[in-house]
Amino acid sequence: MVTARQEPNTTDVTAAVETLRKALTAAGIVLSSLGADVASPSLNLIALGRVRADVALRLADVIQRGCA
């Protein structure tokens, strides 16, 4: 069986974090733990961190309204 070769993730993690932070700030949402995950830099992961329940509900509301 032949599998498709995956291209390495070349997304700029710092730019992605800042873009997400700006969008969340504009929606009145702060994720204090938001940042690049430095444990596995080759994976370009972003740590969203833990949030209070009220922040999670505000985030869900913003996403739902944006999808409508």
Rank of each mutant, 00 (worst) to 15 (best):
K22G: 01
R65A: 11
L59F: 11
L31D: 05
L20K: 02
G28H: 05
R65V: 06
A53M: 02
A16Y: 10
T11Y: 14
A68I: 06
G49W: 09
G28C: 07
K22P: 00
S42Q: 11
P41V: 05
A47M: 04
N44C: 11
V55N: 01
I29N: 02
R58Y: 00
T25Y: 15
T25M: 05
S42P: 00
G28Y: 12
I63K: 08
D54C: 01
R50T: 02
V62E: 13
S33Y: 14
T19H: 13
A60W: 13
R50V: 01
P41I: 03
L59A: 07
T14A: 10
D12F: 10
A56H: 10
T3L: 15
T14W: 11
S40E: 09
A39Y: 11
V38N: 13
L48R: 02
V13W: 03
V30R: 15
K22L: 14
V51A: 15
R21F: 08
S42H: 14
D61K: 11
A27G: 01
R65D: 09
D12E: 08
L34V: 01
L31T: 01
L34T: 00
S32W: 05
V55H: 05
R58V: 00
S32R: 10
L43N: 03
R5Q: 11
E7C: 04
L20E: 07
A47K: 08
A47I: 00
I63M: 13
I29S: 02
V2N: 10
G49F: 15
V30W: 11
D61V: 00
A56C: 03
V17Q: 06
V2R: 13
I46R: 02
G35I: 00
R65S: 10
T25A: 14
N44H: 15
S33P: 03
T3M: 14
I63Y: 05
G66K: 07
N44Y: 07
A26R: 12
